[in-house]
Write a protein that binds this DNA or RNA. Structure first.
Ligand SMILES: [Zn+2]
Length: 454
DNA sequence: CCTGCCGGGCG
DNA sequence: CGCCCGGCAGG
C-alpha cells in the first residue's frame, strides 16, 4: 500500500516539482527511459572490480580465506599490489613450486649425492660422507639459509656431473634462485615466502627424495620406500646390499672400468692409473676418490630427473620466470596459457578458489575505461564467454583463468584509475531523506543515482 | 556517524 | 520487471 502510493505520488509529484525547480526532466526522462544508470554507474563506480580490488586485499571474503589457506605468503606479504600479485601468481606457484623445489632439492641432493655413495657402499669412505648426509637430510628447512643454498648452488654448478644437468636445467635453477635472492634482500615478506618454500621442499621431499636417492635408487618403489625410511628414520646403520646395485666406474680418461666394490675400484685406480703400490695407499687415498664414481644400475639419475624435468618443464619452467615479475604488459596471454595448461593437470582446489572469484568474472565489462558505458574494455572478456552457468569443469577452468588474469589486470590497471566516489550530490542529499519521494528511482532503490551523475 | 550504491531478495 | 533492503566502502 504505502509503497505503491508513495511511488505514484512520487512520480507525479516529482515530474512536476522537479521539472519546475530543476528543469532536469529531460535528463531524468531520458535516463529513466533507457536505464542508462545501470550500465554506466555500475560499471564506472564500484562494479565487480571495485569490489574485487577492495576485497581481495583486506582479506574479508570467503575466497580470500581459501586463498589464505592456500598461500600464506599472500597474507604475509605486506603490500597490496604485491600481495595481489602473489595471489595471482599463486596459481603458478603451486604448479611451479614443485619444479623449483625439485630444482633446489636436486641441487642440494646433488651436493649430498656425493657423500651418499659412501654409506651405501661400505665403511671405508663413510667418514666424510656420514657427517654430511645426515645434515643435508635433516636440514631443517628454516635453518637452511641462503648460505647453504648458495653453497649448494656453487657446488652443484662447479662439480655437478655435466651429464645430469642440461643447460636448460641449469638455467631454470639459476633463475629462481636469483629471484629468491633479490626478493629476500628486498623485504622480509619475501623472506617469508622463501621460508615457505623451504618448508615445502621437505614436505615434497618424498617425491623429491627420488633424485636425492636417485644416483643409487632407480625407479623402484620398494626401494624408494626403503630409501625414504632410511633417510627419514635414521642414518641406517647398515644398508641392504641388494637395495642398491652400486658399482664404481673408473673415471680415468680412457678407462671405463667398472667394479662393484670401492676397494676394487680404488685398487684399480691405484694400481692401474696412479701406478702406486700398496705403500702409498695412505697418501694417495684421497686421490683415488677423484678417479672413480659411483654408479647404479641405471648409471645416472637421469631417468628420474628426466621425469621431473619433463613433467615440470611444461609448467614450471614457464611459470617460474613469470611469477617474480607480474609481467605487467600482457599477463592475459601468457598467464592464460600457463593457467589453462595447469588447470587440466592440477587438482580442483584451484578451481574452487578461483571460482569463488568467478562471480565477478561474468560482468567483466569495463575494467579500465570507466568513461565509456560501452564494453570497450573487453580485452579479457573473451574468456567469460556466454558461460551457460553450468558446472562443467571446463567452464570453471575457463572462468578461473579469466578471473585470475582479471585480478592481475585489475591490480595493475584499475587500481590507479579507480574512481573514488561520486562527489556530486545525489538525490538523497539534495532532497533529504524526508523527501525521499523526490529522489530518483535509482536513489530510492539504493542504486546508482541516475539523475545526478557524476 | 552519513552517503552512495552493489548485490540480492521479494512479489 | 519494479521495489526494497542489507551491507559495504568511502568520507
Ligand atoms: Zn538520484
Amino acid at each position: 500500500m504505502n509503497h505503491k502510493r508513495r511511488g505514484q505520488t512520487n512520480r507525479t509529484g516529482r515530474d512536476e516539482k522537479s521539472s519546475a525547480s530543476l528543469g532536469l526532466d529531460l535528463d531524468r526522462l531520458s535516463s529513466r527511459r533507457q536505464t542508462v544508470m545501470l550500465p554506466k554507474s555500475r560499471l564506472g563506480k564500484r562494479s565487480p572490480l571495485g569490489a574485487l580490488v577492495g576485497s581481495a586485499c583486506p582479506t574479508p571474503g570467503p575466497h580470500t580465506n581459501l586463498e589464505t589457506g592456500e598461500t600464506d605468503f599472500s597474507v604475509a606479504a605486506g603490500h597490496q599490489a604485491k600481495v595481489k600479485g602473489h595471489l595471482g601468481l599463486k596459481v603458478y606457484f603451486q604448479c611451479g613450486t614443485p619444479g623449483v623445489a625439485d630444482q633446489l632439492d636436486a641441487m642440494q641432493s646433488d651436493v649430498s649425492t656425493r657423500p651418499h655413495p659412501a654409506p651405501s657402499s661400505g665403511s671405508s669412505r663413510s667418514v666424510s660422507s656420514c657427517i654430511d648426509v645426515p645434515q643435508s637430510q635433516r636440514r631443517s628447512p628454516q635453518e637452511v639459509d641462503m648460505d647453504e643454498l648458495m653453497a649448494a648452488m656453487v657446488l652443484s654448478s662447479l662439480s655437478c656431473s655435466p651429464l645430469l644437468h642440461s643447460p636448460a636445467n641449469t638455467d631454470t635453477a639459476a633463475a629462481p634462485m636469483d629471484c629468491g635472492g633479490s626478493e629476500l634482500s628486498d623485504s622480509g615478506s619475501s623472506g617469508y615466502w622463501s621460508v615457505g618454500h623451504a618448508n615445502r621442499s621437505p614436505a615434497a621431499s618424498p617425491p623429491t627424495a627420488e633424485p636425492d636417492a636417485g644416483p643409487a635408487t632407480p625407479p623402484d618403489e620398494g626401494l624408494d620406500m626403503d630409501m625414504e625410511q632410511v633417510l627419514f628414520d635414521e642414518p641406517a646403520p647398515r644398508k641392504r646390499k641388494n637395495s642398491v646395485k652400486v658399482a664404481y666406474r673408473c673415471l680415468w680418461p680412457s678407462c671405463g672400468k667398472v667394479l662393484t666394490s670401492v676397494v676394487g675400484i680404488k685398487r684399480h685406480i691405484r694400481t692401474t692409473h696412479l701406478c702406486r703400490g700398496g705403500e702409498h695407499e695412505r697418501c694417495s687415498r684421497s686421490e683415488e676418490d677423484f678417479y672413480y664414481t659411483e654408479i647404479n644400475q641405471q648409471q645416472q639419475p637421469s631417468p628420474p630427473q628426466r621425469l621431473l624435468c619433463g613433467a615440470a618443464s611444461p609448467t614450471s619452467p614457464a611459470s617460474p620466470p613469470s611469477p617474480p615479475p607480474p609481467s605487467p604488459p600482457s599477463p592475459p596471454s601468457s598467464a592464460c596459457g600457463a593457467l589453462s595448461r595447469s588447470a587440466p593437470s592440477s587438482p580442483g582446489r584451484l578451481w574452487q578458489v578461483q571460482s569463488e572469484h568467478s562471480y565477478q568474472a561474468p560482468p567483466p565489462s569495463h575494467v579500465v575505461s570507466t568513461a565509456a558505458p560501452g564494453t570497450a574494455s573487453c580485452r579479457w572478456t573473451p574468456t567469460p564467454t556466454p558461460t551457460p552457468t553450468c558446472h562443467s569443469r571446463q567452464v570453471l577452468s575457463v572462468r578461473v583463468r579469466s578471473v585470475s588474469v582479471g585480478e592481475q589486470w585489475l591490480q595493475q590497471h584499475s587500481a590507479p584509475c579507480r574512481r573514488i566516489r561520486g562527489e556530486a550530490k545525489k538525490c538523497r542529499k539534495v532532497y533529504g531523506i524526508e523527501h525521499r519521494d523526490q529522489w530518483c528511482t535509482a536513489c530510492r532503490w539504493k542504486k546508482a543515482c541516475q539523475r545526478f551523475h557524476d
